[in-house]
Simulated scan of single mutants.
Amino acid sequence: MPQDLTLTLAQAEIGASHRVAGLNPPTHAPEWGPWLEQIGFVAGEPVRVLSRALLGGEPLVVRIGQSTFALRRAEAACILLKGDMA
């Protein structure tokens, strides 16, 4: 995984289009990596944040490919992004 990737899905602007670069699950929850892959967060897939809850900013509503999910901020922080696709 390249070290220069700093943008995560948790940090992405609402509506900006990105691609998944990889996953970096926390050491306390390594099972998040395989789980996120199973639901479609694999390298190269298009992804965008559709909305965030008003209070606290979670959950995030995200679109990956043709699927829509609600993720907690901690889960979204595991998803590394490639640059804006705009």
Rank of each mutant, 00 (worst) to 15 (best):
P2W: 03
Q3M: 13
D4Q: 15
L5G: 07
T6G: 09
T6S: 06
L7V: 10
L9S: 01
A10Y: 02
A12F: 04
E13K: 13
A16V: 09
S17H: 07
H18I: 03
R19M: 05
G22S: 09
N24H: 13
P25N: 07
P25R: 07
P26Y: 02
H28W: 03
A29Q: 13
A29K: 14
A29V: 09
P30Y: 05
P30G: 03
E31R: 09
E31S: 14
G33Q: 02
W35T: 05
W35E: 09
L36R: 08
L36M: 07
L36G: 03
L36E: 05
Q38E: 14
I39N: 08
G40R: 06
V42C: 12
A43L: 01
G44S: 06
E45T: 13
E45Q: 15
R48M: 11
L50M: 13
L50H: 02
S51H: 08
S51A: 15
R52V: 00
R52H: 04
A53V: 01
A53M: 00
A53N: 04
G56Y: 04
G57W: 00
G57R: 14
E58H: 00
P59S: 07
V61F: 00
V62D: 06
V62P: 03
R63N: 04
I64Q: 07
G65K: 07
Q66M: 08
S67N: 09
T68E: 14
T68D: 00
F69Y: 15
A70M: 12
L71T: 01
R72E: 12
R72T: 11
R73K: 14
R73W: 04
E75T: 07
A76W: 08
A76I: 09
C78T: 11
C78M: 12
I79M: 11
L80F: 06
L80A: 07
L80T: 08
L81H: 08
L81R: 08
G83N: 12
G83W: 05
D84V: 15
A86G: 14
A86I: 11
